[in-house]
Design a protein around this nucleic acid. Structure first.
Length: 476
RNA sequence: CGGGGCGUAGCGCAGUCUGGUUAGCGCACCUGCCUUGGGAGCAGGGGGUCGGAGGUUCAAAUCCUCUCGCCCCGACCA
């Protein structure tokens, strides 16, 4: 605990790792590329799950669970899909000491196993839509991993829906992207840009991929969620047809969508500071910590009694911890809870007792403020609400301040190589221009924003006509 | 797979170049005292097959050979 976090301006990458390890969110595991999610980190995942799960269910989705192992032949049925995922799959070839007749892939994603089942379940238009989600782990043999942002095994949710028409599938794809956006902004306090992925960046096997893109504190982009319109690709690969009202056989239309434990990385890289994690109140399992301060046994007794009264009151609405550990001094406790990102700290000592109040410190502002004992529940409630709003607005301002409209390719290259950020530039739509930019600068098209304005312009690379700007950035 | 760095106590490291009593330091941990409004102090204590295997030597953490593993940076990706 005495270890200091590497400041962001010294080494952003080290800072990130320091925060994850020291806030006890995760730890390196004995298996290369895999991590252990520790209780502090898992608590964040549980909050993500609870809230998203509720939002999915409110929009008509249900949960199910499909197997971890997928027959090799399934993986090979959709051409683009197998090409995209095969190189990064782990494959089981031995079971019960015997060589298996058919190797089993550990799922990198579940489209294939799920659509093999949908074939059994879908007969008629009356069976549609199917709106299934699953919370699961998946495995991708990543070459270079980073805690939460990219690990070989990760936790996520994957939705897999089946529809009668393209329009319905497209609608579903958008509905989910909207849920992701709402969740990211209202709960995680991370402003995101929703849009469509270019052909080069879309999911292996999808017709269209949509994403929400967030900006991290180092001005790089992080894809925070994706929603795919899979068209009829998987229905055709797995021969899933339904009979419509007219008695005609039709291929089913599909979507899939997911967010992962990567969101925890996004929270850190959006909000955390050189003192550690800063959790948006709505995603913090513990919103309030009370640090009592005393001198001698008499004071200790009085202070703890008073502090416990406050805890009881706040407990009605919030998860509160009273840190009465004897072996640590207050300063140590301040630092430790700051590291873990608890949104609000109340310091309660003899001075506060005599003035009938407490000292409140918001984690994001780190300013001490005396508050009255009376109405403390309301004060804390308002503080947390305000903090949630402020965090989103602060992140939004940062994103806006680091987004540039650029019409000159040299300037484009200069910004990407220098300060970074999001660049809004015209693009003709040609994958060759996109590839050239990636080669020259390592920046990619993050997405084509839904809310972009129609605007005549010239492609930043080739100068051909363009109808609007797309977002370029270096990404995680 | 390419480039870089590193394996010595739970963590972070020194010692290795130049071989030599009992392998050392900081943090953490345990006991006691003392402390408590920003990461306290004092005293005592526990904890090591020096990543592994082989070799050279009177003697190896240190030299030689092989090997295993990890981290960071790049190409791929939620």
């Amino acid at each position: 605990m005495a270890e200091k976090i590497t400041p962001r301006h010294v080494d952003y990458s080290r800072w990130y790792t320091d925060v994850v390890l020291q806030a006890k969110l995760a730890d390196y595991s004995p298996v290369k590329g895999a991590m252990v999610i520790r209780p502090n980190g898992y608590a964040i995942w549980e909050m993500i799950q609870q809230n998203l799960d509720r939002m999915f269910k409110e929009s008509g989705h249900v949960n199910a669970y499909f197997p971890l192992l997928i027959p090799e032949s399934f993986m090979k049925k959709e051409a683009e899909h197998v090409e995209g995922f095969s190189p990064e799959c782990a494959v089981v070839t031995i079971g019960g000491g015997q060589e298996l007749e058919e190797p089993l892939y550990i799922r990198p994603t579940s489209e294939t196993i799920i659509w093999s089942m949908y074939k059994k379940w879908i007969m008629s238009y009356r069976d549609l839509p199917i709106l299934i989600n699953q919370w699961a782990n998946v495995l991708r043999w990543e070459l270079r991993t980073r805690l939460f942002l990219r690990t070989s095994e990760f936790l996520w949710q994957e939705g897999h829906t089946a529809h009668a028409t393209f329009e319905e599938a497209e609608e579903e794809t958008m509905r989910i992207l909207d849920i992701y956006k709402t969740f990211a902004e209202e709960y995680l306090a991370i402003p995101v840009i929703p849009g469509r992925k270019s052909e080069a960046e879309k999911f292996a096997g999808a017709l269209h991929t949509y994403s929400i893109e967030a900006m991290m504190q180092d001005r790089k982009a992080l894809q925070a969620g994706t929603s795919h319109n899979l068209g009829q690709n998987f229905a055709k690969a797995f021969d899933v047809k339904y009979q419509d009202k007219e008695g005609q056989l039709q291929y089913v239309w599909a979507t899939s969508w997911g967010v992962s434990t990567r969101l925890i990385g996004a929270i850190i890289m959006t909000h955390a500071d050189d003192n550690g994690l800063v959790l948006p109140p709505k995603i913090a399992q513990r919103q309030v910590v009370i640090v009592p301060i005393w001198r001698g046994d008499d004071e200790k007794k009085q202070v703890l009694e008073y502090a416990d009264g406050i805890r009881q009151e706040l407990k009605q609405e919030f998860n509160v911890i009273l840190d009465d550990r004897d072996q640590y001094k207050p300063g140590f406790k301040f630092a430790e809870w700051e590291l873990q990102g608890i949104p609000v700290r109340l310091e309660i000592g003899p001075k506060d007792l005599s003035k009938n109040g407490a000292v409140l410190v918001r984690r994001d502002l780190m300013k001490k403020e005396f508050i009255d004992r009376k109405g403390i529940l309301e004060t804390v409630r308002q503080t947390l609400n305000q903090m949630q709003k402020d965090m989103l607005e602060r992140a939004r301002k940062f994103q806006q301040d680091n987004t540039h409209d650029v019409d000159d390719y040299d300037k484009f290259k200069e910004i990407i190589a220098g300060e970074g950020g999001f660049i809004r530039s015209h693009w003709c739509g040609d994958p060759a221009c996109e590839a050239k930019i990636k080669e020259d600068t390592k920046a990619t098209i993050r997405n084509i924003p839904f809310d972009r304005e129609e605007e005549k312009g010239k492609c930043i690379v080739c100068g051909k006509e363009s109808n609007g700007r797309v977002i370029f950035a270096k990404a995680y």
